[in-house]
Write a protein that binds this DNA or RNA. Sequence first.
RNA 1: GGUGGGGUGGCCGAGUGGCUAGGCAGCGGCCUGCAAAGCCGUAUACGCGGGUUCGAAUCCCGUCCCCACCUCCA
Length: 489
Amino acid sequence: MSIRFYDTQQAQVRDFVPLTPGRVGLYYCGATVQGMPHVGHVRSAIAFDILVRWLEHRGLRVDVVRNVTDIDDKILEKSQASFAPGFDAADPYQPAEDWFALAYRFEQAFADAYDTLGVRRPTYEPRATGHITEMHELIARLIDAGHAYPATDGSGDVYFDVRSYPAYGALTRQRVEDMQAAPDADPRGKRDPRDFALWKGYKDTDPATASWPSPWGRGRPGWHLECSAMAGKYLGPAFDIHGGGLDLRFPHHENELAQSAAAGDAFANFWMHNGMVTFEGEKMSKSIGNTISPEEMLDAAPARVVRYFLGQAHYRSQLDYKPSSLQEAAAAVERIDTFISHALQRIHAVAPGGDFELDMAHFEVTADFAAAMDDDLNVPQALAALHETVRRGNKALAAGQLEAADEALQQVLAMTSTLGLDDAGTGGGDAGSPARQEALDTLVQAQLAERIEARTARDWARADRIRDTLAAAGIVVEDAADGARWSLK
RNA sequence: GGUGGGGUGGCCGAGUGGCUAGGCAGCGGCCUGCAAAGCCGUAUACGCGGGUUCGAAUCCCGUCCCCACCUCCA
C-alpha cells in the first residue's frame, strides 16, 4: 500500500512518491526563538517526529532540516526592552540581555523540551544568522529575475515584488486582490502594500551586532527568507515535504514559496501543516495569556503521558487541552504500560522498571496500524489498533499462551516506538542503575516470598500488612494466577 | 469580503453509502481471601431542515453555528 498525505497546496490527500527513490527530504519550521516554548510548538515537533519515524519504519531514509530563526523584529525588541531603565524582569526575560544571548538561551529551552518529549534531533538544524550569504545570493537571483527591488525611499530595504509574480497566493489559493491589506500597513518604499521585505536596511536604533553588510547596504534579513535559503542549501531546489504549523501557511509559507519559485526552484512537493493547540477551545497564544509550557505539563504528568496526549489527535486536527486531558491520557498510557510490564515479566523475566534487551529491529506493527499510518498519519485509528493489540496480549497472558502474548508484546513495542513513546522521558525510566534495580528486586521478592507463606497459611492480616508496607514504599503488588508481581507506582 | 478546516454518544476522538473504531468515565458480570490488574457484556450518537437511495453520520440542496489564516505566531 502506498503512503498518502494531505497536501495543503492541492487541498487533497494524494499518494506520496519520493522525488529520489528511497529517500525523503523534509524541512519543517522550528521556532523563532523570542520566548519560551509552549506546548503548541512541541505539538508541531511531535507531529513531524511521528512523520519521520513512520517514513523510516517504511524503509525510507529521511533527511530532516528544522530551522532556528534567531534574528527577527521581536527578538531585537525584547532585547532592547531588557536594557531600558526600570526594566521589569518579567519571568522569561532577563535584564540587559543581548539579542543573540536571548535567542540562544531560548533555543536551548526548545531543545530541552524536544529532548524530554522524545522528539528526535533533526539531521541538521541551521540558524538564520549563519546563512546571510545564502540569503544574499537568493535576493540577487530574485532581483535579476525582476521579482525583487531595492526600496526607493533610501531605507536600504529590499522587497519581493508581489505584482511581478502571477502565481503569488498559490499555496493558500488566494487571489492578491482578495487579500485584506494590513490595517497598519506602512507602504514605505513599496510598490504594493503586499510586498514583503527580503532585506531590512539598518536603522540607528538597531544594535550594530544585528547587521551585516550586503550589496544593498547594511541590514538584516526579512522573516521569510531564511527558510527559502536554508531549505535550498541543504535539501536542494526541489525536495519532498515542507511542514509547519497551520498558522504559518500565510504569510510565512506563501512567501517562502513565492521567493523560491520566483527564483526558479521547484521547492516543496508536499506541504503539510499541523493543527493548533487550544486551551478550552481558544487558541493558545501569548496575547491571550493562555499558554501552557512543556514544563507545566511535565509537572503534571510523566513525559510519556505528555507525549501521548500531544500526539494522540490527528496532526491536522485542533487539539484541545483541558485540565482533565492529561489524566485521561495517563489512564490510556498506563493500560499500555501495564501490559508491556506484565508481558516482560512473564515472558522475558524482566523485573519491573528494569532494562531489557530485545532485538526491536525485527518487530513489526500490525497491518491495521500500518494502514492507518499510511493514510495521512491517522494516529487516532492507529491507536485503536494499538489498544486492540494490548487487549489481545492481555487475553493471551491470562490464558497462558505465552507465544501469542509475545507476538502482541513485540507489536506493541514496535507501535509505541513508531509513535515515539519509547523516547519520551529521561530515557530508561526512574528505576536507577542495574545494580539498584537488582537490589530492589531482590528485596521485594523476599517480601513477596513471605507474603506467599502468609497467604498459604491463610493469614490474611499478615499478607495485607506486607502489601501495605510495600505500598507505602511506592511498590504496588498484584496477585496474578501464576503468582504475585510488583511494579513501581 | 477571501481562503482552509470543522460540528459524532457524559468527555476525548476515528469513520465517506449497509457489517455498532478506540480510549477515558459509568453500569452489570467473571476472576480474587480482599484488592489491583485483566477479561466479557452494556446504555447514551452523528448541528438543523429537506432530498436521492432498498438503505445515509457518510451523497445532494438549503440553513445555523464554530475554529484558523488574511498582522507576529507551531
